[in-house]
């Protein structure tokens, strides 16, 4: 982290004193994300910074940075007002290229799913062996019921979150399981420590607990078109297939829940079939 910070000078706003030094969380092609504080030491926030691009003309660069940050903020405001689970914007300076947002506790959905599947992998083989010996389909069903329900439940929450997003007229533009957070219930926040041995089994189920919060609206646009929405779903489906191949079959649950949340889903799902046939890009141009 220290080397990363010497490599990239932080934005000016982060050079002023704060109770704790900002930490660089991640770095993308367009910007960097720091964890810092907003107003008070106990109010954590995420600061998204779009540094100036030296290869662009300064006037054009300033205009692009400002426009992109503004549009991201506007999309977030729209989502918040409509009750879509996204981070709140705390403060921003579009001219300076930064925006402070609510810090979402918890882990990315991708990490939660992988942890869950990772723990399950041994058990799955044993189950398979047991089923082969007993050839008892009822037993198999029961095993599925008990081991996959938290995962199925998470899929439903993902579908509901994406459905709520599309309902408000916003498409995300980069829907992946890394751009969704699993926020633990607030009551847990203060007392996560000290799990006894008896609670260990419960902890495993807790990996997938919490609200699904959509993050990173850097590529989001306000759109009501079925085509754009279908591409959003398609991108998520592909991301799902590549990051969690073993949970791929559960994507149908995401779509079912999406359909329950969003009234106009059926025409989007029809479009999704088209998109699957030809890929994300509509035309061969550009």
């Amino acid at each position: 982290m220290a080397t990363a910070q010497t490599e990239f000078p932080p934005p000016k706003v982060l050079t002023y004193p704060a109770s704790a030094p900002p930490t660089l969380i991640t770095q993308g092609a367009e910007g960097r994300l720091y964890k810092t504080t907003h107003l008070l030491p106990d109010r954590p926030c995420a600061l998204k910074y779009r540094p100036p691009k030296p290869y662009r003309h300064p006037i054009l660069d300033a205009r692009l940075t400002k426009a992109r940050l503004s549009s991201e903020a506007k999309v977030l405001e729209r989502c918040r007002r409509e009750g879509v689970p996204v981070p709140a914007v705390y403060a921003m300076d579009p001219a300076a290229g930064w925006m402070m947002m609510e810090w979402i506790e918890g882990i990315p959905v991708r990490m939660g799913i992988n942890e869950w599947l990772g723990e399950r992998s041994d058990g799955e083989e044993e189950e398979g062996a047991a089923a082969a010996v007993e050839t008892d389909s009822a037993r198999q069903e029961e095993a599925d019921e008990t081991t996959t329900t938290p995962l199925v439940d998470l899929m439903k929450r993902i579908g509901a979150a994406v459905g709520a997003l599309h309902r408000t007229g916003v498409v995300h533009g980069d829907l992946t399981t890394s751009n969704m957070m699993l926020r633990p219930p607030p009551s847990q926040g203060g007392q996560v420590d000290g799990g006894t041995a008896g609670e260990e089994k419960e902890d495993k189920a807790k990996v997938l607990e919490g609200d699904v919060v959509l993050i990173d609206f850097g590529l989001a646009t306000q759109s009501m078109s079925d085509e754009d929405r279908a591409v959003d779903l398609y991108v998520l489906e592909r991301a799902f297939a590549s990051t969690h191949p073993r949970a791929e079959r559960l994507f149908a649950t995401v779509l079912a829940s999406y359909k329950d949340t969003f009234k106009k889903a059926s025409s989007v799902l029809v479009k999704l079939a088209d998109v699957r046939m030809r890929g994300r890009k509509r035309s061969m141009l550009g």
Partner: peptide
Amino acid sequence: SLAIMGMALRGL
């Protein structure tokens, strides 16, 4: 939260 957000987005 919405009020603070509205202030942050002033004039956008």
